[in-house]
Design a protein around this nucleic acid. Structure first.
Lengths: 198, 198, 198, 198
DNA sequence: TACTAAGCGAGACGGTACGTCACGTCTTTTA
DNA sequence: TAAAAGACGTGACGTACCGTCTCGCTTAGTA
């Protein structure tokens, strides 16, 4: 009596799009607990079963919806490399600040950070498809900067990355202060003091 | 027909304790969405109304329960000052790592970080009674270190604090890696490179 | 983990009445399969759970609603006894025909005769509280008629009763013909030919 | 854009048989509400559409399945005529009792008596193809008995028929007692008292 | 010492959303 | 082109909690 998985080939692409769009819209309009599966289905003009057929939970829907926004779902992240690490990182962090300013992106991301707390499978996906690609790209850029003599070669790059990124996420998630490019610049300046060769 | 606020003098302390303990126990045992008001009331041997009489939401109950654990509910945080800033911070960060290792503390804290996303009042309370006291104490210790010439005087202390703390919270909330004292030491070492006079 | 039965003392009589009335109204208006629990709850202005708390199934609700109509729920049935059995039975059968003419009574009765087919508990209740009381009363009246010499003493009264009643129910349930007092009279006349002393 | 009726010539007889057999099997195994179209299709190894293409409702399928059992689907009913009306009717009623004892026949018949309540088209079919042929045959036999002087000529034969048949159906549908040949004999004996010339 | 008003445990209530099932329609693929 | 397979929009199912309410029953503080 296995439930038998549905056949992806028969999947209705129009419905899939409608569901993800409805989810994003509702997340932007309502507080997350009010973004119910029923509300998404209703907004998308779709049966609830069509959601349950393809996603195991609301969180999974939101994840896919978020991935639609996040770099078009691509897991490949490539950072600019003009040869000036500080300038390149500044561009990247400003882009991050800009993403946080998009209410649909920000709300979906907050929702995922909430759901991740009680959903190990989602946590793994977030790590693998959202966080890790970015962190790996930064790490790669850091390595290039080390080769160029801009970053101390004795530094543990994994810690270096979090020194740069964590303050932004921390401030944003906990709303300890405004999320501005100026703040990003401050953090970056300070972090670079720690990373440069001494 | 104002509902007339309940009289705190007549409040049953035994019930209050039972509720907060039940909340903490359940948070440690169950996934947060299953920690319902009904479950707390039932576990505490208490009527639901007794919870609704004294707290506006589940999040408020969890907050009070968490405060019971967090430094005994005191909002006064004082950091050690042996004259060696690095050593003092190391002690403090190790204490933080230890708190994160307590499952009841950790689960309650995660739950609050979740609820905060859609509850501005709770967010304000978290900031004022949990985060700010610690951050202020660290800031104070940083100022003393500046006076002692251990920290560069040109540094914005608010950013400095986040450089030290954010990586820990980031790694813990997003589970990007293990939460160890070794990691805390690495972060602190790196951060201090940024903060010391140059 | 027994579900613990609800306490009848705390039951809301207003809700109970609203539910039974709503059920009867809907049965009179809609085809039986469209008389859903949700529709009853909605019409009664009541939560679904209030129905599920007190009744195990839609059929049970309909049964109680029907009993409200059927002789005011009383299980005591007493037949007239003027000394003339034929005349007395004619009165009784005409009353039965009149009941069948009430759309709420008739629809509820039909619904119960439907549900009874797959619900032995309901079948038992129908027998004990609806059919048997009437049949017993007729039997009692038949016995009196035997003593008065109007009915042959060799007759099996249980069969005699069904000879009188079954044709009415049969015609009504299967809609093999119109349900009129004239038909009742015809059946009664014929049955009495079988029952009278010979 | 009329849906265009399917062409009966192209109908797959193997599927038709499989559907009717599956329906009968399920009716014998499950409670009627659980005999769903999906269950029939699945059991028959047939697509749902193949059922919807050829039958308007579950009741229609069950009707056809029942007709397969009921006298081989023939609508022609001929009663024995040995010259002894009582004996002939006894044979016929015993055959009816035997049919009621077949669980597939009985379950299907009960199901139809249920569906008939909210489906006038089905009711008409039941009357025309199941009840009327039998009743007409009995009527014909009664007429012969009248001519033979065994039945009073003043009797309304339609009422006479119901006097004989209704008690059996009544007892069977409402389960007011066991369905035995002895009971059939009792009913017949009593009914004949009413019908014989006096 | 009795009275009275509040908090209390209990749990029924009107609701909303859950996740599942079957409906009847449709679309795609196979024979 | 009928048939199998099964996804789809729809809507009811029966359950779980929500937050409010109403019961009796303690349990203080007032008379």
């Amino acid at each position: 009596m296995t439930p038998r998985a549905p056949d992806p080939a028969r999947r209705n692409e129009r419905s899939r799009q409608a569901i993800l769009s409805a989810a994003l819209d509702l997340i932007g309009e309502l507080t997350y607990p009010k973004v119910t599966i029923e509300a998404i289905a209703s907004r998308a003009g779709v049966g609830k079963q069509t959601i349950y057929r393809w996603w195991p939970s609301k969180a999974a829907v939101v994840f896919d919806a978020f991935m639609m926004l996040n770099k078009g779902g691509s897991s490949e992240v490539v950072l600019p490399d003009t040869g000036d690490f500080a300038a390149d990182m500044r561009v990247v962090l400003h882009a991050t600040v800009a993403e946080f300013a998009d209410p649909r992106y920000a709300s979906a991301y907050r929702a995922l950070n909430t759901d991740v707390q009680d959903d190990p499978a989602l946590a793994e996906q977030m790590l693998a498809r959202v966080l890790r690609p970015t962190l790996e790209a930064v790490k790669e850029r850091l390595r290039a900067a080390q080769r160029a003599g801009q970053i101390d070669t004795g530094i543990d790059l994994d810690v270096a990355i979090e020194l740069i990124y964590a303050p932004l996420y921390h401030r944003w998630l906990l709303r300890t202060g405004p999320m501005t490019t100026a703040y990003a610049d401050q953090v970056l300046d300070l972090a670079l003091r720690a990373l440069r060769p001494q």
